[in-house]
Nucleic acid binder design. Structure first.
Lengths: 180, 180
DNA sequence: GCAGACTATGTCAGAAGTGACATAGTCTGC
DNA sequence: GCAGACTATGTCACTTCTGACATAGTCTGC
């Protein structure tokens, strides 16, 4: 019934109360939990979650034409989130534009392709360096019952992904150069 | 103007003429090019591509209430596809339900979590074995100008991805066991 | 000759997600 | 005192994608 976005919001609120704006700020970058949403979607979803009793809010004075709404998880919301976590994830189709381009790469100019992959490699290496700096700040994995474990475990996933991706870009560039 | 799905269809047609049904069959599994679509979407997109002159078709006798339509790339379609391949990919937000669950995993029962990751690991190891069998059939990378290069390069990406993913699942299970 | 799987094309309602538009108070530095 | 950045909530049109419904001929094995 609740959408995956709904659970993403509950997962953020499980760490403490937030306004819709705060949640949107946390979801702007895919760092740490690999789910993004715009504020337009978040405000709409918060209304649904509040109607379903999974979140509640207090109105507090703040900027803007209306009061700000500080949302928190209700006990029902916490139960729903906990139950959802251990259920098998819904299969989401992989849709990767760069891999699709690679599928058609035999048609293209090798020089332009090398430029494309060089740029992608740069992006992945940059992200990798950023994630490595973040990992250092943890100084080892937190306890699995600590909220910070969630951040660390997703960071580890991101690290592995960026390494695999950078490696593949390097392999592609080597292939394209070998054929000269 | 043309959507990514449109280019995915052009990329399939670049390898030879196909019916909408054939394209749908090729896109049912994310193997080799990491883009999936249902036939309902494909038929609709083929109509748009035909209207734009990027594909053309011959009606031939076949099963069903209407004749079957065998689509092929037009010269304009080929040009559009080639131009698209080397353009930087549009950033697609990462949305990964398992990683999101991991972000909230500190709330959940470690036993149930281990079961979840054990099952995911099984899936990734199975896919990895399948990809490795496929890789063997290639016997080394084809020339970058060969259509088979597209298949091989995307397969390499899939291999790297499944390895990284399996590794991460194993790390998660170790973390969950260490805390007993 | 007939059942069942497969080939084949299409529509439609609805969910999920994007990007633009709309509004307006607060806080910081010059 | 004022500009500009930031906080804050919301709507709306549009695109993309899903899942169900609809239809019907062909091919294989029993």
């Amino acid at each position: 019934m609740t959408s995956t976005l709904g659970y993403a919001i509950l997962a953020v609120l499980a760490r403490g109360e937030r306004t819709g704006y705060d949640i949107a700020a946390a979801m702007r970058r895919p760092v740490s939990y690999f789910w993004t949403a715009r504020h337009s979607q978040i405000h709409a979803e918060l209304q649904k979650l509040a109607a379903g009793g999974l979140v509640a809010f207090d109105a507090r004075h703040g900027p803007g034409p209306q009061d700000k709404k500080v949302y928190r998880l209700t006990p029902e919301g916490g139960d729903a989130l906990r139950a959802w976590v251990t259920e098998p994830p819904r299969e989401r189709p992989e849709r990767d534009e760069l891999v699709l381009k690679t599928y058609a790469s035999w048609l293209a100019d090798p020089g332009l392709l090398r430029r494309l992959f060089a740029e992608q490699l740069r992006v992945h290496e940059e992200r990798l360096a950023e994630y490595e700096r973040e990992e250092e700040r943890f100084g080892g994995p937190p306890d699995p019952g600590d909220p910070r474990f969630g951040n660390y475990a997703t960071l580890r996933c991101g690290l592995g992904y960026e390494r695999h991706r950078a490696e593949w870009c390097r392999w592609m560039m080597a292939q394209l150069s070998a054929s000269l």
